[in-house]
Amino acid sequence: MASIGVIDYGMGNLHSLGKSLERVADNQRIEISYDPEKLLKCDRLVLPGVGGVLCCMNELRRLELNDLVIEASKKVPMLGICLGMQVMLEHSNENGGVDALGLFPGKVVRFPDPPADAPERLKVPHMGWNRVHQSKAHPLWKGIPDDSWFYFVHSYHAEPSNPEHTLGVADYVRPFAAAIARDNLAAFQFHPEKSQGAGLQLLANFTEWNGAA
């Protein structure tokens, strides 16, 4: 039986994500684990995350999961979610500056505070529903209408160096990369497991994705 590994380093919304994957993954076992040996045997991997990048990287290193992610990123389809997306880039400005996994060239920066005279009542963190415009066609967008709504919770966002890696864009204070992808890697700033129909469809697409663009 094929399996999907969810990387557990103590900073992810694992119960909700695991249940959502079980709902859409026909004939695939969901393995939530911090054991590198078990995870390396999985056919697909998910790197979730909530919280701060410094704690995230410290826990990944402590559990020797940073090496697992880098090794597996060359072999199997991998999905990053929220903080899991951010640590896939090279560097984050959060916590005074933290080097991350470097799977995508680019950095992670904080949203600027909205101007006082902004017509909308925007604030940081960006929390709630927002539309995502699909920058390019991709198997993970299958069956998801362009400009669908997804659920976000974050103060920092990715700035990929290569514009070809941007898969989707949202707008909050300014346009930002809400989804990135290259080769067998994809990552989303929003939480698909909290995004109702569109989010479940995205997770379903991931369970079938072979890593091709």
Rank of each mutant, 00 (worst) to 15 (best):
S92I: 00
L185K: 10
P160V: 03
G51D: 01
L122K: 14
C82Q: 10
G52I: 02
G97N: 10
K194D: 02
V87E: 05
G96Y: 09
M1P: 01
C55E: 11
D147H: 12
N205T: 09
D67F: 03
A178L: 13
V124A: 12
V153N: 12
L54N: 04
R121H: 06
A177R: 06
G52C: 06
F188S: 03
F150T: 01
H165P: 01
P36N: 06
S135C: 11
R110N: 08
N162D: 15
K142W: 02
S148W: 04
G12L: 10
V53T: 13
R29G: 00
I180K: 10
H126V: 02
S33R: 05
V169C: 10
G106Q: 11
P114V: 11
Q201H: 06
K123S: 13
A170H: 10
S20N: 13
K74E: 13
A179T: 01
H138W: 09
L65Y: 03
V76E: 00
D113Y: 06
V53P: 01
P105Q: 14
W209S: 09
L47N: 03
Q28M: 14
V109W: 04
D183S: 12
P175G: 12
A213G: 06
R121N: 09
P112G: 08
F104K: 09
K41W: 00
A204H: 15
C56A: 15
Q134V: 05
